[in-house]
Design a protein around this nucleic acid. Structure first.
Lengths: 344, 344
DNA sequence: GAAGATCGTGCAATCGATTGCAAAAGGATC
DNA sequence: GATCCTTTTGCAATCGATTGCACGATCTTC
């Protein structure tokens, strides 16, 4: 038996012709429609397999008026116009990417236009995707609120804010800030600075935890110890240096991120202080580099990869029309070194 | 004059109706076709603007049989199944993302299936995109070769290999490895280890630079000083420790990445060695964290963001049918500390 | 004023799928 | 064998754009 010249099977029509059925039947068979007999399904599946045919997802999505794409937008620090460089982002991204892949969604990556996320309305990010995940709120909470009103499902990784009408997923920042501060207090530290921009809701929540811990030791927060340190390492160092040179010396610092903490450590060390003996530092995020730096950094861990999954479940839930609620993930203090005043 | 109830303008047809022309004319006008009179174009553009209409990119791409998407695939370390965690990736990704956005392409993110990139053939990555950028070759060079034969334009960030039929963009790894090693030699170091997996083409090229520098000082590479250290920080530390404990002590190490270098530094420090006094270390990549770590890391810089742009130009060039050639980007030694034997 | 050239526009097919509705095929019952 | 029910399949419209080809309008030119 001579094998007929194999005509490539490109479309459903080709496959249907081969099977001797109509396009409609072929479509239904491959989608496992109950309208189609088991026999026909078997046959079509077999042929599809044999000729290495898979539906054209693009045509399918077009017809179904969807994209099978979820955008991920990273919020950048307003002032720095810094390109995302915190390893925290990468880990989050990895979690999101894997999770989306599990659900057969594609990931479209973007970073937020620095001054105004509303500009996204005009762009690919919103138009080419079924939903959007924002990582961080930056200082643009109200604009996120507006975007949420547009109809595209969005979910935001961030901290608590008032009058919010988007779905929020975030770590338990208050507990994290509390645990970090409490840890330092228990080591005997009393002049504890806080590094981070509290206009950022996540950081603000951490700061409230910081205040709570201080209160338990009957200390009241000192405004001069609250320092608006940016996420960007270079500028974090500058601010840290300026702080130490001009505004007195704390015996400990709670930092809003590990990168910030590492910046602080190197600055302080360069200025001749010993870390942690003179100044103890606690970070936030537990990035790999922090774990293995020396001195190893005590920090607050959030399960970032899991967070990625939760974010994905949340957008996809919204896309499917489910009711979706906020999620708060636990955070956990990771103690990596003694921060005791006396040498341990 | 009463404004008529605004019927939303969703499709070209709607717009055409509004203008009193046909769909075809509307399409041509918006695409600035020479077939259409200036007057008509003006009118349609005006209406489009006024009614906030933009073409449905999805339908357009579908019709034009393209996707306006470029996939970016990160190669993972075979053994570690490590999720990308090197900040180097993030920077590269940022460069690629911005550059793609400039060209109105979307970025689909994926990581390579660990054992076998050929599996991508079946998946979204190849089917949903007009081209693919691979970051790193891992140990899968030959499979990349196969993929390149499939017709989808691909470009790879990596190092030189023989019998290559894909477009390659990469740093000048040989020079980088040479400069790093030479620097150590000039500081008086003589027992210089090399950390990195030389089955990776980039690292292999760096190693050849290392050999060249040694040769100039009439040293010959000692196999026992060539250590297969993974990119993953945790495991890098284990390997570094094992090396130092069992295989003698070098007075310097050339590392294949900054993360590896930082891992080495912390390991060595923990083991009681002084860096750089006892063991000097040079990294590769110049990630932010390396610049600001203490001791600040001497390293080899590649202009990653620019690399991102070059990669993008390269795929897009191929997509447009241009002839595209390989590119090698300069690398530059960044000296951040004295690595002199004497305390300098 | 008619023939011919030029310019602008519209008709309709096409990309590859999904799906409501109608029609055909197959079975059961009397 | 006719009738009625299921079960299975096919027809044709649809999603929103692009584009080859043909047609109608306008302008020259004799």
């Amino acid at each position: 038996m001579i094998k007929p010249t194999a005509k490539p099977v490109r479309s459903l029509q080709d496959l249907a012709d081969l099977a001797g059925v109509s396009r409609a039947t072929a479509s239904r068979a491959l989608n496992d429609s109950p309208l189609i007999s088991e026999k026909t399904k078997q046959k079509l599946r077999g042929l599809a397999e044999k000729h290495n045919y898979t539906v054209n997802q693009q045509a399918r999505d077009f017809r179904l008026r969807r994209t099978s794409v979820v955008s991920v937008v990273f919020m950048l620090d307003v002032k720095s116009d810094q390109h995302m460089s915190d390893p925290f982002f990468l880990e989050m991204l990895g979690g999101i990417a894997d999770s989306l892949a599990d659900h057969d969604y594609d990931l479209l990556l973007a970073h937020a236009p620095v001054p105004d996320v509303l500009a996204l309305r005009e762009g690919r990010v919103l138009k080419h995707s079924d939903g959007v995940i924002f990582v961080g709120q930056g200082e643009q909470h109200s604009m996120l609120n507006e975007l949420a009103g547009d109809g595209t499902p969005i979910v935001v990784w961030g901290g608590p804010v008032q009058d919010r009408n988007y779905v929020l997923v975030g770590g338990d920042n208050a507990s994290g800030g509390y645990a970090a501060t409490r840890h330092l207090l228990e080591q005997g530290r009393r002049t504890i600075a806080f590094f981070g921009n509290t206009r950022n809701p996540e950081i603000s929540a951490r700061y409230s935890g910081y205040e709570k811990a201080l209160a338990e030791f009957e200390l009241r927060p000192d405004e001069s110890l609250k320092v608006d340190v940016p996420f960007d390492m270079r500028r974090a160092q500058e601010v840290a240096r300026e702080f130490l040179e001009n505004r007195g010396q704390p015996d400990a610092v709670v930092c809003a991120s590990d990168v910030m903490a590492l910046a602080a450590i190197s600055t302080f060390t360069n200025l001749g202080f010993k870390v942690p003996e003179d100044i103890a530092i606690v970070g936030y995020d537990d990035i790999d580099l922090a774990a293995y730096s020396s001195p190893a950094l005590t920090t607050v861990r959030q399960n970032i990869r899991w967070a990625g999954r939760v974010l994905v479940e949340s957008v996809l839930g919204q896309i499917n029309g489910d009711a979706v609620s906020d999620t708060m993930l636990a955070s956990e203090l990771i103690v990596r070194q003694s921060s005791g005043v006396s040498g341990e």
